[in-house]
Amino acid sequence: MYIEQLKSKKINLASYIPIPLGFILLIFFNFFVSDGVDTNQVIQQTINSIGVNLTFILLIAPLAFGLLLVLFWVKFIQGLSIRSLTTSRVKIDWKRFFFSFFLWGTITVLMILAMYSMHPENFVWNFKPEKFFVFLFLALVLIPMQTSFEEYLFRGHMMQGLGLAFNSRLIPLVVTSVLFGLMHISNPEVDKVGYVIMIYYIGTGFFLGIITLMDEGLELALGFHAANNLVGALLLTSDWTAFQTHSVFKDISEPSAGFDVLTPVFILFPILLFIFSKVYGWKNWKEKLTGKLSTIN
């Protein structure tokens, strides 16, 4: 009932257009502007000029501000509650958020430690206490805002708007997942690995969309996304990623398009779907993911 709950509201569907349209135009503008530009070189030059932490702020602050914009728009322009944007439940289920956060956070830590144990030559110790703890503060504030913006925009605002417009679950699932992937097309990882990495980005979009529709709310997606970006940024960095940070480790190896891209999408995400489905008793997968919206009495 995550989308259906809004059918009883008097909503102008045109109010769902401005923010997604503006963001989509920004995605394609960034793509065409950066086409042929070495984005990693630009990031390195910025780091050399203003430092790692200020570069991090410069990159992430607009997305963190985007969260405030989406919440303001929904609350004061559309006249809807933040609760209805977040979940179909009577109140936001923070236990779901923290279960997802700690589950994926733990898996991420174990994967990084396993990679370090198997291939220590691919890593260098990057921990500098005075720099790390400044970054830790910045990360704890800005990264959850950045990830929440992406969830509230794609799996919240856009998914609900498209669902209402087309009386469908499948259309918003497909559209938001693809657009979520395309949002990352200007990342330096794409230059380094190639467009095959879009399998990971779009696959992640589908995973997050599926758990949102199956669980009738954003809590699990919010927790997963926050853990993915926050734990990753604190533990591991490299010279070819969008977020280059004062992390504990630095990866100096060449990225593998096969293992790094395919393992999460085709192995880890299905395992997470299985765990979530058992914990929360998900049923009627076909109807919840591909069916028409239910009628609200």
Results as ranks from 00 to 15, higher is better:
Q78G: 11
I60H: 01
D35K: 03
V90C: 06
L54S: 10
L58Q: 12
F72N: 12
L85M: 09
S81G: 09
Q44A: 10
I82R: 12
I60M: 05
P62G: 01
I27V: 14
T87H: 04
F72H: 09
I47M: 05
I60G: 01
L63V: 10
R83E: 13
V90S: 15
L58V: 10
V37M: 09
K75A: 13
I57A: 11
K75H: 10
P62F: 05
I50H: 01
W94D: 11
F29E: 13
I77E: 11
I43D: 13
F56M: 12
I57F: 01
L54G: 03
N53I: 04
L26D: 01
N30S: 12
Q44L: 13
F32Q: 12
T87F: 06
A61Y: 02
L67F: 04
S81F: 02
N53Y: 03
T87V: 08
V90N: 12
T86F: 07
Q45L: 06
F31L: 11
L80Q: 10
V33G: 05
V90T: 15
I77C: 07
I24W: 05
T55E: 10
F56L: 14
I19H: 01
I24P: 00
V52D: 09
L68P: 10
F32W: 10
V37Q: 11
V52A: 03
I47G: 12
A61C: 05
P20K: 00
L85E: 04
T87D: 03
F28H: 08
G79L: 05
F76R: 15
I27Q: 07
A61Q: 02
I50R: 00
V70D: 09
A64I: 04
A61D: 03
R96M: 05
N53P: 02
S81W: 08
R96N: 12
R89D: 14
V90I: 07
G51N: 00
L25C: 13
L58P: 10
T86A: 12
I19R: 00
N48E: 10
F31I: 13
T86Q: 00
G22P: 07
G66K: 06
V70I: 15
K75D: 05
L58A: 14
F98D: 14
R96A: 15
L67R: 07
K95Y: 00
V37Y: 10
I77N: 07
S49Y: 03
W94I: 15
I43E: 11
L58E: 07
N48S: 14
A61I: 02
R89N: 08
P62K: 01
K91T: 08
I24N: 00
G79V: 06
N40W: 00
G79W: 00
T39G: 08
V52W: 04
F29A: 14
D93H: 04
